[in-house]
């Protein structure tokens, strides 16, 4: 049975000399499975501990990444597979990181709106509302509460659904 796949491609992992390529021992699978179950419990448990805005996220992502690596390396045989397949897989993650990272370099550093709004309490808190500032002068009394409620415009506004975009 010298023509088995992968035997000359994957030198290691199939030490038993059998023609079947790198059949992993059963205990590897059961071990992986237990690890995954254990980590699931850990991640659920960790979510009950309040670690702050980023803390919980980082812990959850860390555990998820360990789980994902285990699945990829063992269940998906990436550890014994061609290096090129690992490169393919990692490059996907790399490009995803580029995508998310650079997009966030925009969305995280835009945020000029609030500053302007605070400085410029014209009655235009809600650009979608039909009314606009009066011709004569901006009534100062009307402008002040609008500025106060400006942190979350849609939540505070009376009826966001009543003025949908034109269709």
């Amino acid at each position: 049975m010298s023509t088995s796949h992968a035997e000359h491609d994957h030198g290691h992992g199939s030490g038993n000399g059998d023609h079947v390529p790198h059949v992993l021992p059963f205990k590897v699978y059961i071990g992986t499975f237990s690890t995954l179950l254990f980590l699931t419990v850990v991640t659920v448990g960790a979510s009950y501990v309040d670690l702050g805005h980023m803390g919980n996220l980082i812990v959850a992502l860390l555990i998820a990444t360990i789980k994902a690596s285990v699945v990829a390396l063992i269940f998906m045989h990436l550890k014994w597979d061609h290096k090129f397949h690992a490169i393919i897989f990692v490059s996907a993650l790399l490009f995803l990181a580029v995508f998310i990272g650079i997009t966030m370099s925009d969305t995280q550093f835009r945020g000029e709106a609030e500053a302007i709004e605070a400085k410029n309490p014209v009655d235009l808190k809600d650009p979608f509302k039909a009314e606009r500032a009066g011709d004569v002068a901006v009534p100062k009394a009307a402008a002040a509460p609008a500025a106060a409620g400006s942190a979350a415009p849609a939540a505070g506004s009376a009826a966001p659904a009543a003025t949908p975009a034109k269709h």
Binding site: F95, V98, F99, I102, S105, D106, T107, Q108, F109, R110
Partner: peptide
């Protein structure tokens, strides 16, 4: 080519940093 898409958006209101 994957790193440059935002040059279509210089005036779109994206952050100056981007």
């Amino acid at each position: 080519s994957f790193l440059v898409w935002g040059h279509h958006m210089f005036v779109s209101g994206q952050s100056e940093l981007s």
